[in-house]
């Protein structure tokens, strides 16, 4: 006899659906600085696990995670969401990072609006009207709240998507195998799980320290040969 409530299984399936690398949100088009680091020889074969753990610690934990959490809490509050969105815009140093985040957010809002996820179409209209940039972290928090996913699973999904996007980019950049990718995700999983349940900082204490990837993204736009948007 299985004692797992049906609602828990439905939640798990929802997280699988929206966290799936095949979920159509354009994630495959972004490397978030990895392509530049690989091109410059700063990240190569064998570096994937430390690189991923470093990005989780230096970028996702103190920045993306915080904005996703606050957007999840603020879903339905237009002013709060726009304030968070302005924060992402302000604190994202590299233009390729800001532009990538806006495009990823637009893709995410677009698919969720078409799927009828509560809150997605309303926020998308604000973005289309130029009233707010529509960054990915804010979009993700509000759509997952709208879909009915609690904050903990939403943060887990955010962390998984962050790692999954970087590791699949690593494969396409030729520095990792499919086994390397799974090992990196396995290494990051307990870290993400712990952070998904940890207290979230107030938004004015958001932080990020990932200087090499930010520099790589700054340099990305000037490169003539590139596979990814950033």
């Amino acid at each position: 006899m299985n004692d797992t409530p049906v609602s828990d299984i439905e939640t798990l399936l929802m997280a699988c659906q929206f966290g799936d690398g095949q979920f159509p949100s354009g994630a495959f088009g972004f490397s978030w600085g990895l392509e530049g680091l690989v091109t410059d020889g700063l990240v190569g074969r064998g570096d994937l696990v430390p690189f991923i753990l470093g990005q989780v610690d230096g970028r996702w934990s103190g920045f993306d995670r915080v904005f996703v959490a606050h957007a999840h809490d603020g879903a339905g509050d237009e002013a709060a969401l726009c304030g968070l969105d302005a924060g992402v815009e302000t604190y994202s140093l590299a233009s390729a990072q800001r532009e990538g985040s806006r495009r990823a957010g637009a893709a995410l809002l677009g698919i969720h609006a078409r799927l009828g996820t509560p809150g997605a179409a309303e926020f998308r209209k604000l973005v289309s009207a130029g009233k707010t940039p529509g960054h990915a972290a804010v979009a993700l928090g509000l759509v997952l709240a709208g879909a009915g996913l609690a904050r903990g699973p939403a943060l887990a999904l955010s962390g998984y998507g962050f790692v999954s996007g970087l590791t699949t980019a690593a494969i396409r950049l030729g520095i990792a195998s499919h086994i390397d990718m799974q090992q990196a995700i396995s290494a990051a999983r307990p870290v993400i799980a712990a952070l998904a349940q940890s207290p979230v900082l107030p938004i004015d204490e958001v932080s990020s320290f990932s200087p090499l990837t930010e520099i790589a993204m700054m340099r990305h736009g000037a490169r003539s040969m590139r596979l990814f948007s950033n």
Partner: peptide
């Protein structure tokens, strides 16, 4: 940019 996935960007995930 297709992220080295020219099929994906026009078929499985045309969102971009």
């Amino acid at each position: 940019e297709a992220g080295a996935c020219p099929h994906t960007v026009i078929r499985e995930d045309p969102t971009l």
